[in-house]
Design a protein around this nucleic acid. Structure first.
Lengths: 357, 357
DNA sequence: TTGTAAGCGTTATCAT
DNA sequence: ATGATAACGCTTACAA
């Protein structure tokens, strides 16, 4: 038998109201002796309130939904931890949803709100158009959703975004300052907004420095290691670049792999800049110069934003926060000297070496 | 204004009972015409039932709790996806908790069940003794918890475990078959059961092959890259081994790092076997020979087990499943020839090389 | 300081 | 085939 507030009330010879009062720490209106007695009984019976019943009245679940494309993408565990940390601190639970960027799954997850399962949602989409004005699940002005990383196509929303263009700019600028002129760029999937923004920053930095943008060394990647690897291979084979800016770390890993395969030394012969500052960077030798998004912090800020919104009872203006990126200079970038870039010759030697292992 | 079953009933000129019936697909007792009419109105009003109110009656939340140490550990995202996949297929939501192996947090999370927030829990502890007979949150015989990877100290439970000893055995056997005799072993934290089991398998394989167990080359690691790195450094410096069995992949990564630093060729001069088959293995050159746990599958099986238990209304026997490990042979292990293991000399050369980069 | 009672949105029992 | 109503465990006016 599950024990309820009624049992406590009986045992303490008070009404359930009184018990409810001490449960919710109502300030005034409770005898000190009564409170103690009730508390003691609660303790004895190891009672804890049924949060479902509580939600029924309050219309609050103390839960938030966290919707992401794929937790296996190493970007997200950090985000999740960040969100969870502040959520739990405020006694909120976190419901996790992976959508694989699938629009139906994204929409499906919004049902959570309608069904009262969560008080609010933190949403990272990889899919443009999930939220737009025509959408059946269109979210009204003060709906408790925080968008992360990708702006929805609706008129008003709250969100948390990285200043991706600036990030692309400073990463490229760093390379330019290091005397690089032929800087390859490996992008993410075309439809993903942040990839476009980073690319814009890249081009802008080039322009500002008076370096021509060479579309031939801007290659499409997929934000996966494999795409980075393949693009890097082409770039290296064509001996076209002295530096590569990969628009995320996963692809930068792919660049490392290609470089290793072709026996191209990083950073001596090829400088590499990544984007994300994943913790696996530790793994790499040399350590990767990259853009830090401080993903864990983004999670925290997003959660705080959401919780604040929830606390305000819908009376809060929608607002978006733009975070500034930070360039983390490590070991994968170095000053370009013309003489050092002659890896094409050595590559053939390497082929022999590889084949007899 | 939120729309309820009552609104539907009014609009359809029926009682809420009838509406409830069509919502729950009750077989008999509903006029075909009425059903259609109601369905249409539901559609029109875009109504969906309040799952909290539903839970109130049914005592079911259609949610499960997934409790893990840390989602940033690359082992867990796979698990989470596996769990989520089958949970969602059965219309269950997943609440995620990271405990950092903290006992209090682990206990805290169990409150979820008491508060009726979840119907069941899948629990991966890294902390012995969270569940034991004295524990206040002691879980009774048919409580809906599935333990993963670590057995609790209670008398009866359901769980899903890898046959770790066997895994340790076949990994070591593989190395022995490759003519290795001096096989170093880097373990996980002492208190973690699966590390002990893997180690037992390692020793057994050695014994069965008539190779003496050398405690000097069994080093304590921490299941983190750093620990693997440090242990490997010592092993390499002492020139004591021709192969290393790291009890998880993260530590194997550390071994790679140390090998690289000392210019020791894998596998030519040092064979390495890992454990977990993390997806980042793709990153490594050469690719890591490792034990595959099929973590994603474990997640699925665990979820199925839990759901089955929930479906059975508590009338199910507790039972545990032991999964068999699989050795994935890739490029980091090779046949040991005595001549090839002279890396100590070359190491000093490498120091010069490193220092002038 | 404490108690009574209504009500949250469902489902389920028992009528009709 | 359908409806009236109690009940789930809590919070919260409103009373006392």
């Amino acid at each position: 038998m599950t024990i309820t507030i009624k049992d406590i009330a009986n045992k303490a010879n008070v009404s359930i109201t009184t018990v409810s009062r001490v449960l919710n720490n109502k300030k005034g209106g409770i005898g000190d002796e009564t409170r103690k007695r009730i508390l003691k009984i609660i303790e004895e019976l190891d009672y804890s309130p049924d949060s479902i019943a509580r939600s029924m009245k309050t219309k609050k679940t103390k839960s938030i939904g966290l919707i992401i494309p794929d937790i296996r993408n190493p970007y997200f565990p950090e985000l999740v931890r960040g969100v969870e940390e502040v959520a739990n601190k405020c006694k909120y639970n976190v419901l996790l949803y992976n959508t694989d960027g699938n629009k139906n799954k994204e929409l499906e997850s919004l049902r959570l709100i309608k069904e009262n399962k969560v008080d609010g949602i933190i949403f990272t989409s990889s899919n443009p158009g999930t939220f737009n004005e025509n959408n059946k699940y269109f979210i009204e002005k003060d709906s408790p959703i925080i968008f992360i990383d990708r702006e929805p196509e609706i008129e008003s929303y709250s969100g948390l975004f990285l200043n991706n263009e600036k990030a692309g700019y400073i990463a490229t600028k760093h390379l330019i300052d290091l005397n690089h002129k032929n800087i390859g760029c490996i992008t993410g999937p075309k439809q993903i907004q942040n990839s476009q923004q980073r690319l814009t920053g890249y081009k802008k930095a080039l322009n500002d420095a008076g370096v021509d943008v060479n579309e031939d060394i801007i290659l499409n990647g997929d934000y996966q290691m494999q795409g980075g690897y393949e693009a890097a291979k082409r770039l290296i084979e064509n001996k076209a670049v002295t530096a590569i800016f990969a628009l995320n770390d996963l692809m930068a890993f792919g660049v490392y792999k290609a470089a290793q395969e072709f026996d191209v030394q990083i950073p001596k012969e090829l400088s590499v800049v990544g984007f994300d500052n994943l913790s696996f960077n530790e793994l790499l030798t040399p350590k990767l110069t990259t853009i830090d998004q401080n993903v864990s912090n983004m999670g925290k800020v997003a959660a705080k934003l959401l919780l604040k919104k929830l606390g305000s009872g819908g009376g809060m203006q929608n607002k978006s926060i733009y975070l500034d990126p930070k360039l983390i200079i490590r070991e994968s970038t170095t000053f370009y000297k013309i003489a050092s870039s002659s890896f094409k010759l050595r590559r053939s030697k390497n082929f022999e070496k590889t084949s007899n292992i």
